[in-house]
């Protein structure tokens, strides 16, 4: 679906609704540690907004979010999540035991921010992977 469907209504409505979806998705990601939602759900919403632009705007959407950017986003999310997990292992804790992540800081604060950053990185991972799956389906494979 790389050709743009020529409809004024589709164009205007998708342009108007995508920022709202993305703001709500950011809310879901950043409030995931004490509200319903979290990295996965927010990432899926971000991917849905990007795919809506892919469908409605066609080739123009690849200028802002290129076909390989999905894979890079997913790779960044996975790598950062793994580093966050191993950071606490380096200072004597278990994998993802945030209380040990930075020596000398209060454990409660560390656990709060550890869960927050884990949600954010999972959001990047899900966002990138779903957009990469869509690009792979429509263009027949994503290259570097």
């Amino acid at each position: 679906m790389t050709s743009r469907y020529d409809s004024l209504f589709l164009d205007v409505v998708s342009r108007a609704i995508v920022p709202l979806i993305q703001i709500f998705a950011l809310y879901v990601v950043t409030h995931g540690h004490y509200d319903p939602g979290g990295g996965f759900q927010g990432g899926v919403m971000l991917a849905a907004s990007t795919i809506l632009l892919r469908i409605s705007q066609g080739d123009e959407s690849y200028e802002r979010f290129s076909a390989s950017a999905g894979l890079y986003l997913a790779g960044f999310g996975a790598l950062a999540f793994a580093l966050l997990g191993f950071m606490s292992m380096a200072f004597g804790g278990n994998f993802l035991e945030y209380g040990y992540a930075v020596p000398g800081m209060d454990g409660v604060v560390l656990r709060y921010w550890g869960i927050f950053f884990a949600e954010v990185f999972i959001g990047f991972l899900v966002w990138g992977s779903l957009v990469a799956i869509y690009d792979g389906l429509t263009t027949g494979g994503v290259d570097e």
């Binding site: 879901v28 319903p36 939602g37 979290g38 996965f40 759900q41 899926v44 919403m45 991917a47 849905a48 795919i51 469908i55 779903l130 799956i133 869509y134 389906l137």
Partner: peptide, 17 residues
């Protein structure tokens, strides 16, 4: 929580794919 996942993934992404 499950409802949010189902609405985002089942009703949007799965349909598109």
């Amino acid at each position: 929580d499950v409802a949010l996942t189902e609405a985002a993934l089942g009703a949007a992404i799965t349909g598109i794919f």
